[in-house]
Design a protein around this nucleic acid. Structure first.
Lengths: 157, 157
DNA sequence: TAAATTGTTCACTTTACACCGAACTAATCA
DNA sequence: TGATTAGTTCGGTGTAAAGTGAACAATTTA
């Protein structure tokens, strides 16, 4: 006996989604837009829907939508005989976005390796720790890449 | 025939390390402190060393050190008969820090699952995409956890 | 052609953060 | 008991990002 899902439940979820994306470096309005688009049925909303439901200004929504589009997170579709744009999540690029994040692991691992190479052998314990952490990041990068590839394969078929 | 490592090489590396940490959300001074501690031989420095070599103010170094200590990235040791604190990287917690980051994957995966649960079955294609992305994040979390565990085991023995 | 719709752009305000200098505390030294 | 050392805390400044309102297209409708 599942409890009925109320409108309030859905609104709360929009905010929760927003917070997750804020933590990932998206602005508050940006997070809310993503939340709204993720909960929307059908899964797209007009500019004015977004203005109304974020309680933000038109300019803010406009700027943020441009940003989200540039990031590849949001997209829009149109319907003939209708001037409006229907904004939607461009979910297929979430993979690319994750790939970008992985490059920061690579950076980290690389800088650790360089660092060990520039240090003398006088403090082997510290050097050893650096090497171990570097190797961990190398392993992580490799495993993550493989997981992404597997996922892509599974998805395509 | 390896070229001799100069002081300038080491300074450049401090800045490089700094940039990597800045990209990860640490302040410029914070990044430099981490860089200095990572390159230091022996691998610790005093407060005044850090002030001098970051070219920052005492207050800034103090505040930043407090932050880095709170984050578990930096620690200090003392020597009897010496009033100074010797700040060092608390490298053993880099693992914990990485674990924290993983919890953001968990958050993301969880919010996606909740979202699917709150949506109707009217737009199955969109729901399917959400499920697929959620499953990817689940896989990633799992693989990353396993890699960390393996690494810890390898390290202990 | 006038009026409405659908956004965009610009100049401004607000907010948050990094960093600073100076005053302060707590411990040690002479 | 001063004077020094080691670091902290406080009030403030500079800068960048987030958001606003109002003016401005560009297209469509009446």
């Amino acid at each position: 006996m599942a409890a009925k899902i109320t409108q309030a439940d859905k609104q709360r979820q929009v905010e929760r989604i927003g917070v997750v994306f804020e933590k990932a470096g998206i602005s508050p309005v940006g997070g809310r837009i993503i939340g709204l688009l993720m909960m929307a049925e059908p899964p797209y909303l007009t500019f004015d829907d977004l203005v109304e439901r974020t309680q933000a200004s038109r300019s803010s929504v406009s700027t943020t939508l441009k940003f989200l589009q540039a990031e590849g997170l949001v997209d829009y579709i149109t319907f003939s005989g209708d001037r409006k744009r229907y904004f939607q999540l461009f979910a297929s690029t979430w993979l690319e976005i994750f790939k970008d994040r992985i490059s920061s692991l690579t950076d980290f691992q690389q800088v650790l390796e360089e660092t060990v190479a520039l240090r003398s052998s006088q403090y082997p314990e510290f050097n050893q720790t650096l090497k171990e952490v570097s190797s961990l990041y190398g392993d992580l990068e490799e495993k993550i890449k493989k997981t992404l590839e597997d996922w892509e394969k599974k998805r395509r078929k």
